[in-house]
Structure formats: C-alpha cells, structure tokens
Write a protein that binds this DNA or RNA. Structure first.
Lengths: 205, 205
DNA sequence: GCCATTACGTACCAATCGGTACATAAAAGG
DNA sequence: CCTTTTATGTACCGATTGGTACGTAATGGC
C-alpha cells in the first residue's frame, strides 16, 4: 500500500551521494544539471521527480554532507573531556578530512557557495547559516568548558570561537590549494599555541 | 601618430575598475557579460576590443585588485620594523579593508574563484598562484625577521607563514558572512596571542 | 576632400543553462 | 483482465551564456 505505481529504478540515497560529490567539487553554480545527472546515472526527469529542483537537491546534499562529514566535529565537541581537547580534535579531524586524497579538498559548506549570481543568494545564505551553526556549536562547547572549570571564568568564548572557526575555514582554502596533511597539521599546531594565552580572563579593559 | 582611427569613447581604466567590482562581488563565473558591460557602461564589442575576452578582463581586474588592495600588505611587510609588527599590521590592515562597508566583503583573490566548472580551471589556478605569492611574501618577511634578529634562529617560518595566511584567508569568509570590524579585530587578537609561543625554535623533535 | 584606421551600436551566433511535455513502461489494486 | 499510479527516456522549451559579423561613425594622415 505504501508503494504504488512503477518503482524507482535507481538508489535514491546513492544518487544523492553522487550529487553531493559533484556539488562539493564544483560548487552550486559550477555543477550543471548535465554534470549531476551524469554522475547520478539518471535522466533529468528522474532527478526532478525525486528531488524537486536543483536547489532542493543541493539542500539535501548539504544535509547529507553535514551528516557524513559533520559527525567527526560533533563527536569531538561532545566526547573530548576538555574544551581544549575538543577544539584540537575538531581541527585535526577536519584537517585530515580536508586533505583526504579520495575526496574533494576542503569543506563543501565553506567552498560550494562562496560567490555567485544574486539569483542564487538563497543558496549562499543557507550555507552561511550552516557556518553560523558551526560557530555556535563551538562557542557552546567553550562555554561548557567554562562551566566545567577547564576554562577560567571570564574567558571570551565568542572571540575564541570566532578565531578557531576562522582557522577552520581558512584550512579549506589551504586544502583546495593543495596543502598536505602535514602542512595543515602544522597550521593547527600554531593555532593551538595560542590557547594557553587565550584561555584566561581578558587582561584588556 | 600613436593614435589613429576613432578614439575610444570611454575611460578604459574606469571601466576596468567597475569590472573589478563586479568580479569581486559575484566571482568570475557569477559575473556575466551582461553584468560587466552594464557596470562598465559599454557594449559587448567595446569590451572585447579593449580587453580581449572575459578571462583576459578578469586577469586585468585581478592585477588591478592587487595594485589597489595589495599595497597595504606590501607596505606593512616592508615598513614595519619587526616581523611581528609586520604580520599584525598586515592582518589588521586587511581586516579593515575586508569589512569596509563601501566595498564587497573579503578578499577577491580568495573568494572570486573558489569552485566552478573544470572549463575555468585556469582562472582558479591563476588565483591560487596569487595566494601562493602572498604566502611566499609573508614567509620572506619572517625570514628577514630571523636575519635581523627579532625572530630567533630556527623559527619555523614556513609553518608560521602558513598559519597566518590561513587566518587571513579565513577572515575573508568571516567578512562575507557579515562579521564586523570589531569581530575581525578580536580574531586577530587571538591569532597574535600565539606569536610569543611560536616565535621560538621548535621544541618538538 | 579622401583614405586608412579604429571604435561604435545593433543584431546576431551556437552552445548551454535549468526545467518540462509527453508517450511509454512497470508496478499495485480491483 | 483493466484501471490507477508512479517512473522512465526522448525530445523539447525559453532564457541566458560567452563571443561576433557587419554596417556606421569618428578620428589622423595625406
């Protein structure tokens, strides 16, 4: 009763994953319907019947990306015992993923909708919201660190979260530019070197 | 003798500057010929006669961008007395420019060619080279600091340059996402907090 | 004045863009 | 069996893409 009519002849989840890879590699506007259908192994009408339109497909691809590639971040923030360990694990886990040779370099959320036509502003705004969510999650983890005592009270968690988010986003550019895992690791070494200085109440006014 | 035939009826330099603004705002692929000619106040054939093709126009726009927006960086790296002061001045000067309300947010070199069609890979490679040039310039300034004694010998200038380049590039994303000058300044505060720890010979193996 | 040269605006090109109409095929329900 | 429902492949849509052909206008050289 749940399934009437001709059954779908392709694996929707697998097709979506292929679409995600194309968007990840070429960005929203750089991925044409032809690119997408070719990678997904289906024809245009099947795509529209299953996903609605290009933008809806992209939003599903973004959600899938967050599910697949975002778990490492969530786990790091949740399971690491201290704020510092959480931030460092998050950075290193993402850096490893960004430089993985079998995947497009860098983060799809950061790269796939950087600039483009005003017509597609909604898509870019959606990605910007995802980035904002990441920033907020990081900040909440830092505040948990304050609450649990591994960060001193008065720590500027907003500034700290903005800083490490900035580093994380910069890593995406570096990864797309071909930086090796080792280079990304060194960058993170540098970023973490600031921690002990930052994890104190603000000395300035 | 130098000028024969009908004289050009528009200011080539002014038109190029308008084109630069469009590319800066929408990226290479997001800027259509219609957008460009409208902003430049000329018709298509005039554009092609004066600049060759879209890619050549973009390359000139990038060169102009480097001339206009890159001087602050060059000056900071050249005139500041120490490596630390040079890096900090470069970051703060660029952050101020990235968040200037009358200009598109962030750096055109970082944003205008993030992802796109394989057809335009040459354009993205050109921007990547520009980014590499910035990284190299920063590293040379750090090595000058070692030579002049304000950085200890054995300082890992490559890692330091990669780190501050990553922060700088991350600032472009933040600026496009609407971060204020104050927020960018706080991020730079955090990045500079790592300096004293980093400006020492490597302690690790 | 006349010619060579260059720039101009109009009007066009093939190719590609995202999106669909439509006839057909394959399943469940009766 | 027939009907209903959904999916598929082909072939198409108007709009937009980057790029030009071409006749005309404006200049310097002679």
């Amino acid at each position: 009763m749940a399934e009437r009519g001709r059954p779908r002849s392709f694996d929707r989840a697998a097709a979506l994953q292929r679409a995600m890879q194309v968007f990840w590699e070429r960005g929203y506007e750089g991925a044409s319907l032809g690119d997408l259908t070719a990678a997904m192994g289906i024809n245009r009408p099947s795509l529209y019947a299953a996903f609605g339109c290009k933008e809806a497909l992209f939003r599903e691809a973004v959600a899938l990306y967050n599910d697949i590639e975002g778990v490492a971040t969530e786990r790091a923030l949740r399971e690491q015992p201290t704020a510092r360990a959480a931030v460092e694990a998050m950075l290193r886990g993402n850096a490893d993923a960004y430089a993985a040779p079998e995947k497009p370099g860098g983060c799809m959320i950061v790269l796939a909708g950087a600039l483009g036509t005003p017509e597609n502003e909604a898509v870019r705004n959606h990605l910007a919201e995802c980035r904002r969510d990441g920033l907020d999650a990081l900040r909440r983890r830092l505040e948990r660190g304050v609450a649990e005592g591994d960060l001193p009270p008065g720590t500027d968690t907003a500034a700290l979260a903005a800083f490490y988010t900035t580093v994380l986003q910069g890593l995406s550019i570096q990864a797309r530019d071909g930086a090796s895992r080792a280079t990304l690791a060194e960058i993170i070494d540098c970023a973490m070197a600031a921690w002990d200085t930052l994890a104190k109440p603000r000395t300035k006014v």
